[in-house]
Write a protein that binds this DNA or RNA. Structure first.
Lengths: 217, 217
DNA sequence: ACCTGAACACCGTTCAAGT
DNA sequence: ACCTGAACACCGTTCAAGT
């Protein structure tokens, strides 16, 4: 289905260009006019395929979230859930612009709900109640999106440098612990393992909850 | 220090107006021209106080983050850290627009670092290494900002409704667990307690880590 | 059916000026 | 010192038209 219009245009082709533009220039650099230029068509041509900017970006999210699906492998509920969340994280990191523009709407396209289905099934099978499983997945979801939105890896080094500078400017009297921990705090801004650290704490806490409800296991 | 210029203008007065505008109309509704109108001055007047839009918004964040400081009370490290994170969450929920515009820069103003100082000192006193404490606070921070950015409470009900609709449209064959858990999943979109749930799992996981390093306690 | 330029109501910011 | 209109280079989108 590769473009059957006069100019070789199609919804998919437009979305490809949009994702390319978003990855390259960020959300700030994204505009309908620039996208049209990128595709070599008039701006208004895009409005024949999408009702407007918002609808185009929604369609982009919907399509991209289908690619987030991670291979669910064998192992304990905890191992499988961990893999699922790490796959979601990796998928988002590949396209940080998507996270930025998803702030204002819930993520409930069929593609995104595949992940929900997989996560819920892992947890319900493991003995969590449906309510616990729903809350747990929601927590993991918020943590994962927060991590990509507020600590995109491509920004890690500059954030680290800015943090060092800010910490050095503090008075040791008012900020004693931060003064002693300047290195560790700055490192945590650039540390790719921080996400895994928090994820493992969350999973540990979920495991404790599950064990307390099923003392036999 | 209430406005000493010809028009009664001051940096603080401008920031007050900016926060009011941001709370009322969201980041989409915020513009330099509208802020100037709101304040009853010419647009360019603002440029006498701030170099531009970005600097103005940065100043707004810096000032607002000082207000996040929660009263640190007595209790175990876990109780105190929990209160600190809940205070941060409540402060952000009061001004969701701030979260939106903080996406692109690290949060390292002195005001924000007060919270870091308090959290680091609680955890280091409790026996966490500086590295663990830094990672732990970073995880809590990402979780908290993610929760406000991707699940602002004022949007909870409409998100819940949209989720119910999306879940009902799914084929039970492809999404069996989600079909059974529709109520619980939809509820988790509107559930004010989801934040607390995830926070408590994180804290539980941190407690397990701490205990494993200090088997005596 | 598919595509588009012109026009409208918006932006942020530079510049040169007004008091 | 403090304030500002005009102008420039951008936006998204409506409308009326071109092929």
């Amino acid at each position: 289905v590769v473009g059957r219009s006069r100019l070789g245009l199609s919804e998919d082709g437009i979305l490809d260009g949009a994702l390319r533009l978003l990855d390259r220039d960020g959300l700030d650099g994204f505009s309908m006019r620039r996208l049209a230029d990128e595709l070599g068509v008039g701006t208004m041509t895009l409005y024949g395929y999408f009702r407007g900017r918002d609808e185009l970006l929604d369609a982009l999210i919907d399509r991209a979230s289908e690619e987030l699906e991670g291979l669910v492998t064998r192992g304990s509920w905890r191992v499988r859930l961990r893999q699922l969340v790490l796959a979601m994280h990796a998928g988002l990191v590949a396209h940080p612009g998507l996270v930025e523009l998803r702030l204002r709407r819930p993520l409930i396209s069929p593609g995104a709900l595949r992940l929900s289905e997989a996560a819920m099934s892992i947890m319900c099978d493991a003995g969590f109640s449906r309510r616990e499983a729903a809350r747990a997945y929601r927590s993991l979801f918020l943590y994962t999106f927060g991590a990509v939105a507020f600590a995109p890896p491509n920004r890690a080094d500059s954030d680290r440098a800015a943090t060092v500078e800010a910490l050095q400017a503090l008075s040791p009297a008012e900020y004693p612990t931060l003064g002693e921990s300047a290195t560790e705090v700055a490192d945590s801004m650039a540390d790719q393992e921080v996400f895994d650290f928090g994820l493992d704490r969350l999973l540990e806490g979920l495991d404790r909850l599950r064990r307390s409800r099923r003392p036999a296991a």
